[in-house]
C-alpha cells in the first residue's frame, strides 16, 4: 500500500467542463424509479405508497427548533413506554396460556393492562401522535413494535 498522502485533484479534465448529471425527475420519485424497474407484476404506484410509508418511518435528523425537539423526544419516550407495555402484556398472555396465573391474578392483570392502554391512548392524543408513529425502524431487524 502506498504511503503517499491523499492527493485531491479536480476530477474533470480542463477540456471538458463539468456538466450536470442527467438527473431523473426532480420532484416525483416514481418516474425516476421507473428506469430502474427490472420487472413489476402490479401497479408501481402501489409500491410507491408503501415506500412512502417506509420513508415516513425513517429516522430523520433531529429538528433543532424547540417544538420539533419536544415532539421528537415525546415520540421516542412514548415509543419506549409502548414497547415495555406490549412486552409485559405479551409476557402475561404467555403465563395465562401456560395456566400459571390464578383467576384473581388474571382479573387484576387485565385491569392493569387495560388502564395502561387507555392511558397511552390519552397520551398520544395529548402529544398529537398516531398509533403508527409510535415505532422505530431498526433496519435489518425490522420494526421495534
Amino acid at each position: 500500500m502506498s504511503a503517499s498522502p491523499v492527493s485531491c485533484h479536480p476530477a474533470a479534465a480542463p477540456a471538458h467542463p463539468t456538466q450536470p448529471l442527467p438527473a431523473p425527475s426532480e420532484e416525483d420519485g416514481l418516474p425516476a424509479l421507473q428506469h430502474k424497474v427490472l420487472h413489476s407484476t402490479g401497479d408501481p404506484t402501489e409500491f410507491m405508497a408503501e415506500l412512502e410509508r417506509t420513508c415516513a418511518a425513517l429516522p430523520q435528523r433531529i429538528n433543532a427548533d424547540p417544538e420539533g425537539v419536544e415532539r421528537g423526544l415525546s415520540k421516542l419516550v412514548l415509543t419506549l413506554i409502548e414497547l415495555l407495555r406490549q412486552l409485559m402484556e405479551r409476557q402475561a398472555l404467555r403465563r395465562i396460556e401456560r395456566g400459571t396465573v390464578s383467576d384473581d391474578e388474571i382479573e387484576r392483570l387485565g385491569e392493569t393492562f387495560m388502564r395502561l392502554e387507555q392511558r397511552m391512548e390519552e397520551l398520544k392524543v395529548i402529544f398529537g401522535l398516531e398509533g403508527e408513529e409510535l415505532n422505530l425502524n431498526l433496519g435489518p431487524l425490522g420494526n421495534l413494535l
Binding site: M1, V6, C8, H9, P10, A12, T18, Q19, L21
Partner: peptide, 15 residues
Amino acid sequence: PLRGLAEQAVQCGER
C-alpha cells in the same frame, strides 16, 4: 466530469 450536490464538481482523493 460530474456535478454532485449543490452543483459542486465531483473530485477524488486517492490513497
